[in-house]
């Protein structure tokens, strides 16, 4: 157990980095995902094709490959950005695909009849979107978005492979010094569990508040 005491600062630092990675990535993935869904729902065929191509290409590559391409590819074109940022960009680009699909199915879940009722009242298209489509689809997206957030937290462990000292990376280094793999990785698991349970619980609370009864 002395591992915990001896490396307390490092472990907490690693956890903090994981939290930072996730908290920066989630909103970026969300915004990019919403933009992609707008492309995929838009009536212009070319824009729709761009959105579809992005999702099909990015979603079908392993995240690690995507991050590696960014880490090693950007310096090739003369861009050197910090490893942390590379991981954030890779994760955001990847998880945006899932946000996009979540938003699309959320919007499709809104009743066509209610949209027609809003149009029949004389609401302009943008007002229909703001008052009926968006509030209802956001409500139905709470749980899927929480799942994406959880996957971002877990996916951020790939940062370790790129040399970012987030939770997994830190634990791996500690283990190299102390040779206590079970304890070390169980500790990491516990850290992830605390974060993901928090997200799941928060989503549950939000969902109960905003749920649409049908």
């Amino acid at each position: 157990m002395s591992v915990i005491a001896d490396y307390q600062d490092e472990l907490l630092g690693g956890m903090l980095t994981t939290i930072q990675l996730s908290i920066v990535t989630f909103p970026l993935a969300f915004v990019l995902g919403v933009l992609l869904s707008v492309l995929r729902l838009c009536p212009v065929p070319l824009l729709r094709a761009v959105g579809t191509a992005y999702v099909e290409v990015v979603r079908n590559a392993p995240v690690l490959v995507l991050i590696a391409v960014i880490v090693f590819g950007l310096p090739e074109v003369g861009l050197t950005i910090p490893l942390f940022t590379c991981v954030v960009v890779g994760l955001s680009m990847y998880f945006a695909c899932y946000v996009c699909e979540t938003v699309r199915s959320g919007i499709r879940s809104v009743s066509v009849g209610e949209i027609e009722a809003a149009r029949a009242l004389g609401l302009a298209t943008s007002a229909v979107f703001r008052t009926v489509v968006l509030p209802q689809s956001l409500r139905s997206m709470v749980q899927p978005l929480a799942t994406i957030f959880i996957n971002i937290v877990l996916g951020s462990a790939l940062g370790a492979a790129m040399g970012v000292h987030e939770l997994t990376g830190t634990v791996r280094s500690v283990n190299l010094l102390e040779a206590q793999p079970i304890l070390c990785f169980a500790l990491a698991g516990l850290g992830y569990l605390v974060m993901t349970l928090t997200i799941g619980h928060t989503a549950g609370v939000i969902e109960r508040r905003v749920r649409v009864v049908r």
Partner: peptide
């Protein structure tokens, strides 16, 4: 026919 009240 199906009322179409705004469910939220």
């Amino acid at each position: 026919q199906s009322f179409n009240l705004f469910a939220h």
